[in-house]
Amino acid sequence: MTPTTSDPATAVADGIVVVDKPAGLTSHTVVARIRKLAGTRKVGHAGTLDPMATGVLVVGLNRATRLLGHLQLADKSYDATILLGATSSTDDAEGEITAVASAQDLAGITVEAIESAIAGFRGEISQVPSKVSAIKVDGRRAYERVRAGEEVALKARSVTVSRYDVVDVRTGPAGLEVDISVDCSSGTYIRALARDLGVELGVGGHLTMLRRTRVGAFGIASAHTLEELAESFDWLPIAEVAADTFPRYDADDEQAAAIRTGRPLSGLKLPAGQTAMFDPTGTFLALYEPHGPVAKPTAVFVS
C-alpha cells in the first residue's frame, strides 16, 4: 500500500493512518492528536495500546472508521521484555512490586527451563486477563475497579498464541530479563503471559517493555511517529486499503447505482467472505458477500 501525503492541518479524506505510538500516551490521546493533524473530528482506532506500550496503532479517518471493523485485524505481533523474579500488582512495570524471589530461586532458572515453560503457552490456551485490563465488569472497566481498591476476578478466556519465541535471556539488576516475540490472536494479554510464565517457574514475573509490531496486515515498517505525521501526514486512502485487503469487483454503471443504495445483486458470483465493490471510476463503494444466488451488502461506504 502506497501512502498519500497531506500537508499538516489540511483536512484529509477517508483512509487509514498507521501510527507508531510512543510510550506514555494513551490510545485516546493519540486519536486526539490525529484529529488535529488530519483536520477531521471523525477518527477512531483499532486495538487499544496501554500507555507504557509502543508500536502499531491503526487509526481510521472519516468513513474508514467503519472499515476498521471489517479489516482482518485479529492477529497481532509483539516484542516484549519479561522480568522474572518480581511480581507486580498490575502485571507490568507500572504497578507495585508485591513479591520478590530469592537469589537462590532465581539461580535455578535456566534458559532450558524458560523454554520448557513457554512451550506450554503456545497454541490455543486458556488465559485469565490482567486485572487492570479494559474488560468491563458490571459496566465498569476492570482497571477502574482495581484503582478504586476493589478486588476484581476475571474469567479465563480462550486465546491463541501461534508464536512465542525467546529472543534473549540475561541477568539484570532486578532479576532475569527475558526478551520475547509473540504472534497471537486478538484478546491475548502479553502482561498475562509474563505473569503466568513467572508463576509457572515459581519466581514471579511481570512485563517491563511492550512494543506492538503488527496488527493484521499493518506492520511497524509502515507506521509513522506523531512527530513525522506533524511534518508530513502520510495516510492510506480507503479505496487502496479495501483493494489490498479484499477481493475486488469492478461494477458497471447499473450495478454501481444499485450498490450505492445497498440493493442486492442477482446472478453475481462472488467468492466466500467479503468483496470490495468499485464503480467504473475506481471509487470504493461497499463490501458485499454472497447469499445463495444473490450478493448482499455488509457495509456501504457512499451515500
Score class of each variant (00 low, 15 high):
T5H: 14
D7F: 15
P8R: 02
P8W: 09
T10R: 05
T10L: 11
I16L: 13
I16N: 06
D20I: 13
D20A: 09
K21I: 09
A23F: 09
G24N: 04
T26W: 00
V31E: 10
R33F: 10
L37N: 08
G39Y: 05
K42V: 13
G44L: 02
A53R: 09
G55M: 14
V56I: 01
V58T: 14
G60P: 10
L61R: 07
R63M: 12
L67T: 00
G69V: 10
L73R: 00
L73F: 00
A74S: 14
Y78T: 08
D91M: 00
T98I: 09
T98G: 03
V100C: 11
Q104D: 11
Q104S: 13
A107F: 09
I109S: 02
T110A: 10
A113W: 02
I114Q: 06
E115I: 08
G120P: 08
F121S: 11
I125R: 00
A134H: 00
R145K: 11
E151S: 06
V152R: 01
A153C: 11
T160K: 12
V161A: 01
S162Y: 14
R163H: 15
D165G: 09
D165H: 15
V167D: 12
P173F: 14
A174V: 14
L176A: 10
E177S: 02
V178C: 10
V178H: 14
S181A: 14
V182H: 03
V182W: 04
D183K: 12
C184D: 06
S185P: 07
S186V: 04
T188K: 09
A192C: 04
A194C: 08
R195F: 04
V203L: 07
G204E: 05
G204Q: 07
G205H: 06
L207Y: 01
M209N: 12
T213S: 15
R214D: 12
A217N: 10
A217G: 06
G219A: 15
I220K: 01
S222R: 09
H224D: 11
E227M: 13
E228N: 09
I238Q: 10
E240A: 10
P247G: 08
A256I: 06
A257R: 15
A257V: 13
I259Y: 01
I259H: 09
R260D: 12
G262F: 15
R263A: 14
P264M: 06
G267E: 08
L268Q: 09
A272V: 07
Q274L: 13
A276G: 09
L285F: 07
A286M: 03
P290G: 12
H291S: 15
V294H: 02
A295L: 04
V300N: 07
